[in-house]
Amino acid sequence: METFTKQTVQITLRVNGENHSVEVEPRMLLADVLRHEIGLTGTHVGCEQGVCGACTILVDGAPERSCLMFAVQAEGREITTIEGVTPDEGMSELQASFQKHHGLQCGFCTPGMILTSEALLARNPNPSEAEIREALSGNLCRCTGYQFIVDSVQDAAAAKAVNHTNADGGSDKEGA
C-alpha cells in the first residue's frame, strides 16, 4: 500500500492515443485537467452535474461525463476527446455530416454530440431516428432543435453503410 501526503500528484493519462504526465490535485475534475492542463479545450463544460452533456468524452470507447470523474480516476483508461476523432486533415465522416446538414449553430454542444454519436454508430451502425434521439437525449443543445443533428447522424450512418457496401461489392467482383 502506498500513501502520498502531498498537495498534488503526478499521474499519467492516456488521451487520444498519447500519454500525458500531469500534476494534479486529486479533487480536479477530468474536464478541467483535459482543458487546462493538457490543453484540449474542445471538451466543453456546461453544468458540472452531468445534465447537459457538453463535457461528454469517450472512456474506453463509451460516452461518459468528464465533469463527473476526477482526473486521478482516469489513469489506465483510454480517453478520447473531440480532438482525438478529428483527422489530421479535413473532417471525420460524422463531422462532415454535421457541417453538411447544419447540425450545429453555436458549436458548444457539438463535441459532446459528435462523441456520443461516434459511440452510437460504433455499436449500432444503422440506428433509427428514435434510437438516435434516445442516444442523444443526454446531450442538450439550445440552438438547433435537434432535427438537423438527427439528420447529420442518420446521414453519416447511411454514408458508412454505402461505403461498406461498396467495399463489399468491390471484393465480390475481385472474387468473381
Partner: peptide
C-alpha cells in the same frame, strides 16, 4: 493502495 491528500487539511 495509493492515497493522495491535498495540501491543506
Amino acid at each position: 493502495m495509493r492515497a493522495f491528500s491535498d495540501w491543506q487539511t
